[in-house]
Design a binder for these strands. Sequence first.
RNA 1: GACAUGUUAGCUCAGUUGGUUAGAGCAUCGGUUUGUGGUACCGAGGGUCAUGGGUUCGAGCCCCAUACGUGUCCCCA
Length: 433
Amino acid sequence: MKIQARIFKGARDFFPEQMLHRERILQVMRTTFKKYGFAPLETPAIEYLDVLTGKYGEDADRLIYKLNYKVGQKDEAALHYDLTVPFSRAVAMQTDLPLPFKRYQMQPVWRADRPQPHQGRFREFYQCDADCVGSESMIIDAEMIAITYEILSQLNIPDFVIKINNRKILNGITQYIGLDNSHVSEVCNAIDKLDKVEWNEVEKDLIDKYIAATSIEKLHQLLIKDLSLDLLKTELNSIEIAQQGIAELQELFSYLAIFNIPETHYKFDISLARGLDYYTGPIFETKLPKHPHMGSLNGGGRYNGLIASFGGKDIPAVGTSLGLDRIFTAMQQLNLLDDVKTSTKVLVGNFGEVTLAASLKLVTDLRANNINTEFYPDADKLKKQFGYCDKKKIPFMCIIGEEEMIANVITLKNLQNSEQTKLSLTDLIVRLK
RNA sequence: GACAUGUUAGCUCAGUUGGUUAGAGCAUCGGUUUGUGGUACCGAGGGUCAUGGGUUCGAGCCCCAUACGUGUCCCCA
């Protein structure tokens, strides 16, 4: 009985033409993370379920992939939903870690979401995180934004904007409109939505959530003013928590200026809320304003209480997370990826038994010189061997037929310009290096 | 979860008010050319029209059900 070949919804296979690009993107990230002093770290794909739940918020908790193993028992397992929570769990377990500690981590994560590939949304995807634990300094928050900016710039992503806000400001606004902290998420949600829909829609939502009319009106009056950070500071002068949040962002922005991050690529955005519960301070998210359908390329922020929630020391933390799959999808849609199918530089043709040993010796010599070399395994017609070379966009082909073997030379053909020459092995190696 | 929409060859799709034997492009393989690709020409293979039922003299097309997919919203990387 044959089983239909099919792939899990929201998961993907990556063939070389995609993987070569994905590896390059990861390499840019890795290099940049190291440049800023982050060291590599990995945690398991699998965690105990109770380590993950209650950190992200109700909606997100439902999207955690639970593993069907000892359901309901204390050691019920799940696939990790992000890298921040497992990292925090690991830090909480490592009592003698010298602080501040900076790590980067690039691994797949899983979410039981409805996939929307066009928007770069999948069930299995790579997160590439840099986090620092053990410092409250806004310098670190600024570094997170700087590193995000540097990576996206190096990948030549045009016109991205890092939106920045502060949870303390959102808490302050909630107080300002006369609600207690239990309503922060409703308020955030409403503000966040305002990006996409009209006020009356947002108002309707808030009414549905039993928010008092006076609070809704006060929120409307505040948002309609579209205040700059400075003016917001005056408006919210009686709210202590908001004052703190604004001061933090002003400090953060002063560091971004010193780090030479162009102002075109970041901005204060009061409508940025972020859904995950664990954020406590500055938050940020990267969007492509010219491609609003595409989900955010990056998200991050400060999460000072998370590590303490695992017991033990209360260690402050901040991090940035770049979405490999979002970035890759955006680059595909923006036509930023060349048509690469292989990393092979030269194909050595196969002329059959008489010349086989000479051809294989050539293959060995080329590889010994670090030239990426592929040997065509069957003595097919040359037409077919050239066709293979062409289809895989291998730039060069070498031939040792009987003529070449007698003359002790190698024919080298450049597939791009069709030039063909006979060379000695030494000259060939020089040419291909 | 809500709404919309789709399923015909390996892939992308066409298929008229229901009417003979199911169409194209690309891809694959072969030939023109047994030591030369990307161009050209010739030829070949490849389809229980998602599944099950119904209407009809007759269904890829109409009706019902099921499965699966896709898009948007919500939320996110």
